[in-house]
């Protein structure tokens, strides 16, 4: 087992929200969480739970209403504005203003805290940019313009920019939003690689529970009133995940750590056959309102033959055979 790293970021009795002269809106109070080096931390919670607010407060884009934030053991307030960008980098969901900018120029801007008043790149700066491009797999696309690459590649560019900024803590607001499944997985495994190989501490918010529960070392779960942290499996075991996300339509399986739709009252159906079609058939039958019950009068058998999979539907003495699951579903007896 990997030893827990040095604490990079921690909050103590933090209150986040928006304060103005007249009144303050507290989004959430008593937040005490931490994240260590070499850790991938996924911040999850339902829409409007305050995920972005927490992340923006962590990187000092908005002030905390109360409580403390410590980065590297130093109070956030005591870190100057020239020092802070060397400690923490932030990737927001804000669209890039100039989409004609090249990938390399965009990543080079990550060196902003280190360059002189006019932004001259030294050899060391250029090297850092090259490394960042290489680590994110963007080196071959470095000359392309941001509006000529895919959404996933654009997100990689932003991660490279964060890497070029050379901070130990990387905070990202929904880096996998709007991405398809393979790109989403690609981004999260890249983040994971950065924590393992570079010892970075990455905190990212996401709605993609599946990947978060599978890949993150630590989950920060924002659940209406409070924040709960722990390894994904700890939160599953304690039933925290189920409590936070279950709804009349959604049930959580603690055994597999996945969500599924809640089905209404079910009819019984007897099911026999060979894997892997067996479990898929059960899934399809479930969608049609059937639960497996070997004593039922309606029986389905699935077998593989010379022409591929075949399904046999038997009801009393009547027997019919189908070559696709779709046909079987169409011919299932109704109420």
């Amino acid at each position: 087992m990997k030893k827990r790293g040095i604490v990079i970021a921690e909050t103590e009795e933090l209150t986040i929200g928006y304060a103005s002269r007249r009144r303050s809106i507290r989004v959430m109070e008593h937040l005490s969480v931490s994240a260590g080096s070499g850790e991938l931390v996924a911040l999850i919670g339902r829409n409007g739970a305050g995920k972005s607010t927490l992340l923006r407060t962590l990187v000092s884009l908005q002030p905390a209403v109360g409580g403390k934030i410590r980065l590297h053991g130093r109070d956030l307030h005591s870190i100057g504005s020239t020092m802070l960008p060397r400690i923490v980098s932030f990737t927001s969901t804000e669209p890039v203003a100039e989409r004609n900018i090249s990938v390399r120029d965009a990543v080079s801007l990550g060196r902003f805290p280190y360059t002189n008043w006019i932004g001259t790149m030294t050899d060391a700066d250029r090297e850092a940019v090259d490394h960042a491009l290489e680590d994110t797999g963007m080196l071959t696309l470095a000359g392309r313009r941001l509006d000529n690459i895919s959404d996933g590649e654009r997100q990689r560019t932003l991660i490279a920019r964060s890497l070029a900024q050379d901070t130990e803590l990387l905070v990202m607001d929904e880096p996998t939003a709007f991405l398809d499944l393979p790109s989403r997985y690609g981004i999260v495994s890249l983040l994971r690689k950065l924590t393992r190989e570079k010892g970075k501490c990455v905190i990212y918010s996401t709605h993609d529970l599946d990947t978060a529960l599978n890949e993150a070392d630590r989950i920060w779960l924002m659940d209406g009133e409070c924040i709960i942290e722990g390894a994904p499996e700890d939160l599953i075991l304690s039933g925290t995940i189920a409590r936070a996300f279950e709804s009349p339509l959604l049930s959580f399986s603690s055994k597999e750590g996945t969500f599924s739709f809640v089905r209404g009252r079910r009819k019984g159906i007897a099911l026999k056959g060979d894997a892997p079609a067996l479990s898929l058939t059960e899934k399809a039958l479930g969608r049609c309102g059937y639960a497996v019950d070997q004593q039922a009068s309606v029986r389905v058998k699935v077998q593989t033959g010379p022409e591929g999979w075949r399904w046999t539907l038997a009801e009393g003495s009547e027997t019919r055979s189908f070559s696709t699951l779709y046909e079987l579903m169409v011919h299932l007896p109704e109420e």
Binding site: S89, A97, L109
Partner: peptide, 23 residues
């Protein structure tokens, strides 16, 4: 011309500019 560096940062958006230390 004194402002070229922050101008370049602003190409990536306001939030980015603020997090790298542009006032």
């Amino acid at each position: 011309f004194v402002m070229v560096k922050p101008l370049n940062a602003m190409l990536m958006g306001e939030t980015f500019s603020r997090t790298v230390g542009v006032r």
